[in-house]
Write a protein that binds this DNA or RNA. Sequence first.
DNA 1: TATACGTGGTG
DNA 2: TCACCAAGTAT
Length: 354
Amino acid sequence: MTTSKKFRTALLQWNKLDNKRQMPWKGEKDPYKIWLSEIILQQTRVEQGWAYYERFIERFPTVQQLAAARDEQAFKLWEGLGYYNRCKNLLFTARYITENYNGRFPDSYPDIVALKGVGPYTAAAIASFAFNLPYAVLDGNVFRVLSRVFGIDIPIDSTQGKTLFAELAQETLDDTRAGEFNQAIMDFGATVCKPLAPLCTVCPMRHFCEAYRHGNVNVLPVKQKVLQKKTRWFSWFVLRVNDKMFIRKRGSGDIWENLHEFYLVETPAQPHWNKQELDTLLKNQLAVNNYELENAGPVTSQQLTHQTIKAQVLTLRLPEIPESLREKEWLPYRKVSQLAFPKLLSQWLAGWKL
DNA sequence: TATACGTGGTG
DNA sequence: TCACCAAGTAT
């Protein structure tokens, strides 16, 4: 018997007898809900996305209701989940489906994969879960499980590796039960063939797993690229005039697009804000001569995928709104709390006491 | 096609 | 502390 055949049989039997994994979207047939769950789960742990899924479904039970959402409302609901372009694309696609498909989710792979924010993985997931179409999912779990069982050390982030694993996944798929198979292989990867400390001693595949036989389970899958990280220094100034504070929306070309922030000063090295430095900054950048430093918080750090942000939040009280800043960007806390912020700032706001 | 995009868990 | 990685996609 081929390894593919053994794999299929062992996987489906494990799924039937030993897979205890439960999730709110499991077994769901509504393509809208499947789509929503898959977008939330992109590069995101199930435990982290779980509550977000439930809140979105509660607030927006149908694609039409999501399409009718205000942008800020959706972003506020997404706040803290990361990769905020997912939220932007979610809104775009909900509106696209509402307008172009009359609210009916497309039911062919080519139509699904054409949706913004939907790539090969997500399209295969929706196609197989909602419509039982024979498309194999290829996510981090599948890369790991296949690389180990079949003993493949070609880097999964190489062009050759991506092609090879995509073909292997499609060959291995039980295409009469695509949805069941796809769910099973991801559950298996997440609970048995785990990245760290896999449960090889109780694994139903250990008798034919190449990595287990060669003792290299812990080095598979292979990745070739190491990502570069840089450190950036952010100083956020909470400018306050009476009960309002200055808020701006972050633009394109950098992290946290569409999220909000306070007045940002980025420096090439760690800043040390003393009176003279502050005087100069306020005068040069904002033409402000009169201010009071209310508070200078601790330097906190956040690790992103490609950069480390070292940030400090300083609160300044000004006598009036500077001419250099627009009136409309000054908001009371009541309004500010409805906007989405990066974690560093939402945490600061949560602890903010007037 | 190489790189950027968030946040949190884990060993 | 730190590297790795998690139901990837867009550009």
